[in-house]
Design a protein around this nucleic acid. Structure first.
Length: 827
RNA sequence: GCCGGGGUGGCGGAACUGGCAGACGCACAGGACUUAAAAUCCUGGGUUCGGCAACGAGCGUGCGGGUUCGAUUCCCGCCCCCGGCACCA
């Protein structure tokens, strides 16, 4: 008997798949398509089992769908630009391109050794000019439509990485990459106008029925829609969501960044002191200011404006807690009905006027408030609006404002435009040229790509490395031919990953980013999996780019990803694996010990794909044992099964009880595994079902020890073994292929259809029905499957164990849940 | 504070539409095979009480209530853990 030696099988079958180009596909309108995608990889060097889990999940889906008759696109590529490679270059002097390509080569080898069924024919890396050319093309398209624009603004800045960060890249006030506290700088930057699509992005969330709630919530929170009204208080426009409280607005607060601050400073008695105080607010720790951990402070500007509802003059203050970047940068202060305004007003002795009462009213107007009343209620002291509920007042007062032309009802978003300029080298050059006479000019399409020049000296200084290359910077203006300068910033690498899934549809196209007809066939991605850490950044940017392509007329769908799975992390010793912690499990070590299939199977079996799991060597060994158990069984019964007649040859009555039983278990397992993998994505229970079938096979094997099996036995064995080998193949493809070959099949598993489920064969002849008395289990009835309800009722009442609990009592009713359970209710 | 997810044996987890709680695996224990061990095959196990045992009775899915013949599942009120947003006007 040949022992199970998976390592040799891995190599043998990987070579066969490669030489047969077994996973390359073309558009085929006659078959349903399935686009299966795992988030492509940043080539950090080595993939650990946490990374690899995601690729295995995708591979199980892809391999299953292929056998289920789908035309499956399952590509892979590399998110190859990015800071770590450049930071390494500053330290080691190794050029980012060199290290990136080496890392890709290594990681590709790791994935191939795992037998992931990628169509490597479509592989690309985003650092290739043939890819980033289309980033530039798209940038210019967006520039032409006003979706890419340049402005000076205060931006998030990471001192350590010496570059700008998008809002999405600031996590808890620190850099998402290194955690360094984020500061601000004023810089000229390129922005993508994602806010143009804020409503669209938010509303379409309802269409994402196959995305996890968690991710939808995060996106909703991130977009942060609120309805309100903009109103002029004289020359100051404020934004409020509570216009129903406007009769209580006794003050107006400006953000220290507000444009009027400078004007008021100039008009004040001591402009220098005024400015100094405002600047002090502006430079207060950004994180603390954003999270409200600072003391509320402010000062009077010396100016008053008019509350348009009361026609009273109200003072204008500058307050440190008002944010310049949200709304209009100015708020009306209603101390009685907003807790922050209340605290501020109490501190500085500003008037507090109650204009909303709880509804129904709880006594008269309180003399003194302890805190703001922030709930909705009924309006008091509000002129013609007095007596309205808050809800009614919001509508009526909004209309009033619009009639008087002093403001309008609007929707405000938290989402801001996406700053994409990065003062770094290893990214896509922004294809723009600055000419003194013509202004900002796009590089003509026929001059794309603007190639990244070879810079060899990485200093890590704050200016763009590309600025050090005069041949790159100094170019003639495309419009007038005069002297001009190139943009020296590169694009945020999240631009690269926002549309790569379209490129996989047509990766070698050199006239367009992709042929619309091809994208139409393959898109949207049917199954997309990756880490939750991309729930906001990557997934919102990709949805934005899809809308840009849509509005360019290149695609006709709104959403790029139909089903999203956020895979859980693999922990070691309770912590996320990382090189610095030294708790990394390298898949290659596991492959050497147990082979690719045991690793694949274990990672799928240990927990549902979206759950975090703790790595366990013992668990891996258990999965290896399961494969060896299949191996031994097939080895023992291979000859009997090979060439056995089909079960269809024998009528149901031709099979004995054990044979019918095995057949039933086979078909039950087909049903369970198919549903678990294809519909429920419960890959762990699919594996359990296969384990149960193997246990059944062993039990059946016990009954066959004497003499050679009869044809009927060989038939049910063959059916069970074939189904088992096919169904285990998405999890353990190398072992399965080898067994399949030994079973005498000529076509490999990549060309074999999934077994079909026979409802009749799966139907049990006898069923066990639990019998409860008053909801407590007392007995079980073993009866023919089709026993009528009346008979079940009689049998249950006659059962001795049941009668022990019913004798001497009145049977009130007998509930029969069809095929499931009987409950006798007694008093 | 607001929004979302979760809490089940020693451990990972299962229970699909309200119907036998703990499938499957890990670890553990016992048996068979073996001179012995490993490997393999078989068996056992939520917990308490009674019994040599087969078995029987009670309790049991974070806590407290409720609906129901019946609740891990539905409803109400709490506690705890994880994730997101948050001086956002």
């Amino acid at each position: 008997m040949a022992d199970y030696r998976p390592q040799a099988l891995d190599k043998k079958w990987q070579e066969r798949w490669t030489s047969a180009r077994a996973f390359e596909v073309t558009e085929d309108p006659s078959r349903p398509k399935f686009y299966c995608l795992e988030m492509f990889a940043y080539p950090s060097g080595h993939a650990h089992v946490g990374h690899v889990r995601n690729y295995i999940i995708g591979d199980v889906m892809a391999r299953t769908k292929r056998m289920r008759g789908f035309n499956v696109l399952h590509p892979f590529g590399w998110d190859a630009f990015g800071l770590p490679a450049e930071n390494a270059a500053i330290k080691s002097g190794i050029h980012p391109e060199t290290s990136t390509l080496a890392n890709i080569a290594h990681m590709k080898g790791q994935l191939q050794r795992l037998g992931i069924s990628y169509t490597w024919e479509r592989e690309f890396a985003t650092c290739e000019p043939t890819y980033y050319k289309w980033n530039q093309w798209l940038f210019i398209k967006m520039f032409e439509r006003g979706l890419a624009y340049r402005r000076r603004s205060s931006v998030n800045w990471c001192e350590k990485d010496q570059t700008v960060l998008a809002n999405e890249q600031v996590v808890d006030g620190g850099c998402w990459r290194c955690g360094t506290p984020v500061t601000t700088r004023d810089l000229e930057q390129w922005f993508f106008k994602i806010t143009e699509y804020a409503d669209d992005l938010l509303e379409s969330i309802e269409q994402l029925g196959q995305w996890p709630d968690k991710v939808l919530t995060m996106q909703k929170n991130w977009i942060g829609r609120s309805e309100g009204t903009r109103v002029q208080f004289g020359e100051i426009e404020v934004f409020t969501t509570r216009i129903d409280t406007i009769f209580g607005a006794t003050c107006v607060f400006l953000a220290p960044e507000h444009p009027l601050v400078e004007k008021y400073a100039a008009e004040s008695d001591d402009p220098a002191a005024f400015r100094k105080r405002a600047i002090a607010f502006r430079t207060q720790d950004r994180t603390a200011r954003l999270t409200g951990e600072i003391e509320k402070e402010g000062f009077f500007t010396g100016h008053n404006v008019v509350n348009p509802f009361t026609n009273e003059a109200v003072p204008v203050w500058i307050a440190n807690f008002v944010l310049g970047e949200y709304g209009t940068g100015a708020v009306m202060a209603v101390p009685a009905h907003d807790q922050r305004d209340f605290e501020f007003a109490t501190k500085y002795g500003l008037p507090i006027r109650v204009v909303v009462q709880p509804n129904p009213a709880v006594g008269g107007t309180p003399k003194k408030l302890d805190e703001a009343y922030v709930d909705y209620g009924r309006l008091v002291s509000s002129g013609e609006f007095t007596g309205l509920t808050s809800e009614a007042a919001l509508a009526r007062m909004g209309e009033w404002v619009e009639q008087k032309k002093i403001g309008k009802r609007t929707v405000q978003f938290r989402l801001k435009d996406w700053g994409i300029s990065r003062q770094r080298y290893w990214g896509t050059p922004i294809p723009m040229i600055y000419c003194d006479t013509c202004g900002i000019v796009a590089v003509p399409y026929d001059q794309l790509p603007v190639e990244l020049p070879k810079v060899t000296n990485f200093t890590g200084r704050g200016d763009s490395p590309l600025a050090q290359v005069p041949e790159f910077v100094n170019v003639p203006c495309p419009t007038c031919g005069g002297k001009a300068r190139r943009e020296t910033d590169t694009m945020d690498t999240f631009v690269d990953s926002s549309w790569y899934f379209y490129r996989f549809c047509d990766p070698r196209n050199d006239t367009l980013p992709f042929e619309p007809a091809r994208a139409k066939y393959w898109m949207p991605v049917d199954f997309y999996s990756g880490g939750v850490e991309h729930a906001i950044l990557h997934l919102i940017y990709s949805r934005f780019f899809t809308r840009v392509f849509r509005d360019l007329g290149m695609v006709d769908h709104d959403e790029p990803f139909k089903h999203l799975l956020t895979q859980g992390m693999v922990l070691k010793d309770g912590a996320v694996m990382s090189k610095s912690k030294g708790n990394v499990v390298d898949p290659d070590d596991m492959l050497q010990k147990y082979g690719a299939d045991a690793l694949r199977l274990y990672v799928m079996f240990v927990a549902p794909p979206e759950k975090e799991v703790e790595w366990s060597d013992a668990g891996l060994e258990g999965s290896w044992r399961f494969l060896a158990r299949i191996w031994r069984f097939v080895d023992q019964w291979c000859d009997a099964a090979r060439g056995a007649p089909s079960t269809a040859t024998f009528g149901a009555e031709g099979l004995n009880q054990a044979e019918r039983q095995l057949r039933r278990r086979t078909h039950e397992t087909i049903r369970r595994v198919t549903v678990d993998v294809e519909q429920r994505i419960h890959l762990n229970t699919a594996v359990s079902a296969l384990m149960e079938l193997v246990n059944d096979l062993y039990a059946y094997g016990e009954t066959l020890t004497i003499g050679p099996p009869r044809p009927q036995a060989r038939a049910v064995l063959r059916e069970a073994i074939d189904a088992l080998v096919i169904m285990v193949s998405p999890f353990a493809p190398h072992t399965a292929e080898e067994l399949w070959e030994r079973l005498g099949h000529v076509d490999g598993l990549t060309k074999t259809p999934w077994p079909s489920f026979d409802d009749q064969a799966a139907k049990p002849e006898e069923i066990v029905i639990p019998v409860q008395v008053n909801g407590k289990l007392r007995s079980r009835l073993t009866v023919p499957a089709e026993t009528p309800e009346s008979e079940l009722r009689a049998l249950a009442l006659a059962d001795s164990a049941v009668r022990a609990h019913t004798d001497g009592k009145t049977v009130k009713s007998v509930i029969v849940a069809k095929g499931k359970l009987i409950n006798v209710v007694v008093a």
